[in-house]
Computed example of a mutant assay.
Amino acid sequence: MNGTAAVSARILGVTAATLTLLLAALVFGAAVGETRIPFETVARTVANRLWDAGYALDPIDAGIVWNYRLSRAVVAAACGAALAVSGVVLQSLLRNALADPYLLGISAGASSGAVSVAILGFGGGMLSLSAGALLGAVVAFGFVAALAVLAGRGPVAIILAGIAGSQLFNALTSLIVTKSANAEQARGIMFWLLGNLSGVRWPDVWLAVPIAAGGLVVCLLHARALDAFAFGPDAAASLGVPVRRVRVVLIGATALMTAVMVSIVGSIGFVGLVIPHAARLVVGVRHGALLPASALIGALFMIGADVLSRTVIPGQVLPIGVMTALVGAPAFALILIRRPVTR
């Protein structure tokens, strides 16, 4: 009983520390920007909105916090967590250290869907840019999945099918932009393709957070199966893991998380590639700890990148994908130097 109590206390302590870190990051993301807002104002704004606390606040500051920055920070956290968890799962299932969520062609398909709506008018005005991106991501994943099944269902087939799908839909995107877009449309699409949180509002929160949380739970339920996949699919099968079912469930979960996040914020690189490796340096390779650690680090990383994108150049907001690449590429290089790839 003492051992059980100690384990329970440790889990509660880790959970409390995680929630505290995440809450602090969200407050930081809501307070820091071109206009600095005190942390106390952020807390009071949230209290007024959630519990009708009645604090007297400047309506402009309260509006910036609630209607712009806080929703943006929450979606950034959900996006970072979802992409990081997806990267962990795909790197384990495919036994490839370079696997990331966009390996399945989802980002390329989302781009094609977005430009089809924005430039070609697909949907007759009834589809938003995000809806078009989500539809394109689903179509691209369906194409990659079908190609992988026809090619043999194995990890190599999935990787090659993903590469083929990405190239195809990237080519379609380039063709549409080159042939049909004017200069203003091309600039807007380019900004979206590099990742953009400027248009995020609370309705996006109610989609992003449940998807990220649900995807994390599904992956955690298969943590032991992912541990077994470290020794290869044959070894996992010999340990009683239903290899095909686990692959379908987990790849489906990562595809759904990635498709939804890309449809909301655009394509944001390096998160799903770098964060899993960074988390392994901190907590090791056991997926019971690796998955939640990656989710937390991914959320914190995205909130930090979003703050930098709004503050690094006064008066201008950079695409968040630029910041994740500028930070992620050197970080990944350091990880490679400290922990060389041996396979």
Rank of each mutant, 00 (worst) to 15 (best):
V327C: 14
A236K: 12
A299P: 02
A161P: 05
L256W: 10
V271L: 14
A137T: 08
V282N: 13
S128N: 07
G123T: 10
A228Y: 04
V285Q: 14
V177Y: 03
F231Q: 13
A230F: 03
I159K: 01
V274N: 09
L103I: 07
L273N: 08
V117K: 00
V285I: 14
R95G: 11
R286G: 14
V115L: 00
A157S: 15
N67S: 15
T45E: 01
A146P: 01
T254Q: 04
A151E: 02
T254W: 05
I60S: 02
A278E: 10
C79S: 14
V285T: 15
A76P: 06
D100Q: 13
A118Y: 00
V32W: 12
H287W: 08
L83N: 01
A181L: 10
L250M: 08
S130N: 13
A78I: 01
V262F: 09
A137N: 11
L120Q: 03
G125R: 08
G121H: 05
L26I: 11
A5P: 05
A213V: 14
A81P: 07
V85R: 02
L291V: 13
A279I: 09
I64N: 02
I313F: 12
F143T: 13
V27C: 08
G123D: 09
G125A: 06
K179F: 14
L21F: 11
L90T: 00
A293I: 06
L172A: 14
L160I: 11
A295N: 07
V317S: 10
H287M: 11
R72I: 06
A255N: 10
A6K: 13
Q167C: 12
L160Q: 08
L22R: 10
W51R: 01
V156K: 02
N96T: 02
A157N: 09
C219N: 11
R49Y: 01
A279C: 12
S267N: 13
V85N: 02
A289T: 13
V205F: 06
G132K: 01
G266A: 04
L83A: 03
A31G: 10
T45R: 00
A43Y: 00
R72Q: 13
T258P: 11
G315S: 04
S86W: 03
V282Y: 08
L216Q: 06
G124F: 05
V249Q: 11
V265I: 09
M1S: 14
H222D: 10
L22G: 11
A110F: 04
A183F: 10
R69P: 09
D234H: 14
C219S: 15
A255Y: 08
G87C: 02
V265G: 09
A325D: 05
A305K: 08
I337L: 15
G123V: 02
S238V: 03
L135W: 07
L57S: 00
A225C: 06
A228K: 04
L26C: 15
L19F: 13
H222E: 12
A255I: 07
A164I: 15
R95D: 12
S112Q: 03
L19G: 04
I11D: 11
